[in-house]
């Protein structure tokens, strides 16, 4: 079955050059109109980013600084805020701004985040803390917006999809390898996002789908 997103209008929130590029391309290939936005710094910025009236919103952003491994005791407060707290509040502004666009039209919100956060990751504490906060925000809002016909879901991805060099530096980044062999894991991530954005996935909400080749297999 080929998923079609014809007549859909999506916004992909992600800085350029990363996973967001692949997700945006996959959404376009499936027929959706796609706009891009950088992670907003405020509610006002978020509302501006969604000005195209999307019915699909995808968050696929990770701050490259958050992928720099290091111990908690060595972090400055400013580093903690940038790597952990800013991504949480930025997603929150997007969620707040998205509600008016998504309700009543089978709206979709998809969060892409690193699967290693499900198990925790030494040397990547801010990244994992942010990712779990984002995931629980999505789960809570999925409960809240279900009556509006909106679904919200999470795609958990290999952290090495976010930074292929990371496993060399962070001991927990790839401690469990994928069970599946896939020549193009990024394409597999994007395909999962596309499916969750489709009408066919309308019965799925509040779910965390591991698109990490079976690496984590969290319950």
């Amino acid at each position: 079955m080929t998923v079609s997103l014809a007549s859909r209008s999506a916004v992909v929130v992600a800085r350029s050059g990363g996973l967001g590029d692949h997700v945006a391309a996959a959404l376009r290939d499936a027929g959706s109109r796609v706009d891009r936005a950088a992670p907003p710094a405020s509610r006002t910025d978020a509302e501006r980013a969604l000005v195209g009236d999307p019915d699909v919103v995808v968050w696929a952003d990770v701050d490259p600084d958050a992928l720099v491994p290091g111990p908690v005791v060595g972090l400055t407060e400013a580093e903690w805020v940038r790597r952990c707290e800013d991504p949480i509040t930025s997603l929150l502004w997007v969620v707040q701004a998205a509600h008016a666009h998504l309700r009543g039209r089978n709206g979709r919100l998809v969060l892409v985040c690193p699967s290693v956060a499900l198990e925790g990751a030494a040397a990547l504490v801010p990244l994992a803390t942010a990712a779990e906060a984002q995931r629980l925000l999505v789960k809570s809002v999925a409960r809240r917006w279900g009556p509006d016909g909106i679904t919200l879901n999470v795609v958990s991805v290999p952290v090495t999809a976010l930074d292929p060099g990371l496993s060399v530096h962070a001991p927990d980044a790839a401690r469990t390898g994928p069970s599946l062999v896939d020549d193009d894991p990024i394409a597999a991530v994007a395909a999962t996002v596309v499916w969750l954005a489709s009408r066919e996935a309308g019965g799925v909400t509040g779910a965390t789908i591991g698109a990490d080749g079976g690496a984590v297999m969290a319950p």
Binding site: I88, L124, A130, E132, A133, L136, S140, A142
Partner: peptide, 22 residues
């Protein structure tokens, strides 16, 4: 998650990510 206290669910989720990682 929790439908009527989403901010609370969010920060409590953050704590779980933190404690597992630490």
């Amino acid at each position: 998650g929790t439908h009527d206290r989403a901010l609370y669910g969010m920060v409590k989720g953050a704590q779980r990510g933190f404690l597992k990682s630490l």
